[in-house]
Design a protein around this nucleic acid. Structure first.
Lengths: 138, 138
DNA sequence: TTAAGTGCAAATTATTTGCAGTAAG
DNA sequence: CTTACTGCAAATAATTTGCACTTAA
């Protein structure tokens, strides 16, 4: 299991041509080690790495998340003005945002379809369509 | 025209039971004075009020926008992690976000319809569905 | 008169950056 | 070796807050 997680992380980095440093490997293993996609903030990932006994500075977590995004390994998702969330899943898909816990998760996307999307104004093209379903306690 | 803008602002505040101070009236007139809906950031509204010759401190612009939101007069729209945008239009509608100019506008909503929206998880209810269409130069 | 609103400047929060040291190719 | 990466601490940027002062009701 450990080995697999490490390998997944290593391959993930290699696939993007990023230099596999100790810290990047640690973060990559935490992010994609189990094959699941994950939603993190810089703070939460930093906490995760601390729990895992890895020493990575918060600044490096920030820089690394940016690097992963630029390399096309992750996407930044904007849901809460105050924090940045990063998602390991790369396709365009809707999210649930839990307003009370400030958590971000994937929304089951089976049937979702956006109809009648307005056309992009002249000279522009749609870069992405963000759909955030905000949840509050019933 | 001036008079109408003033009146619109005054009514708008009165409708929410907010005390009509000089600064709030000034901002309200700028926001809803022409009957159009408007998208602003604290900074942009502060700049607008300065241009209009009104003296309102930036802190008050922030506090006032918050007050307007809490009073149900405006909505905060999250599109860019770094700034908060405020919209005078209150119904749930999609937005265009111009990635190059960082501007926010309403998207023509005629035909837009979201099909197959996933159900809210148990104990939760959908509070709002944010749709942001990100535009980049073609 | 009196509680709400305002303005400043200082405080917070999230994030970035400069730079000296460390490690990957 | 050489350049990219890391860590820390200091710098920024957006926003909030404490507190004395002003004003609408």
């Amino acid at each position: 299991m450990q080995v697999t997680a490490q390998k997944r992380g290593t391959d993930w980095l290699a696939g993007a041509g990023l230099r596999p440093t100790r810290q990047r490997l640690a973060l990559a293993a935490l992010l994609v080690g189990d094959g699941e996609n994950r939603h993190v903030t810089a703070e939460s990932l930093h906490a995760l790495s601390a729990e895992a006994g890895e020493k990575v500075s918060l600044a490096t977590v920030y820089n690394t998340l940016r690097a992963f995004c630029e390399a096309g390994l992750m996407n930044e998702v904007v849901v809460d003005g105050s924090k940045s969330y990063f998602d390991t899943r790369m396709d365009d898909h809707p999210h649930f945002y839990w307003e009370d816990s400030h958590a971000l998760t994937d929304a089951p996307t089976e049937a979702l379809r956006i109809e009648g999307l307005p056309e992009a104004p002249a000279g522009m093209q749609v870069s992405r369509v963000d759909v955030v379903i905000r949840l509050k306690r019933a």
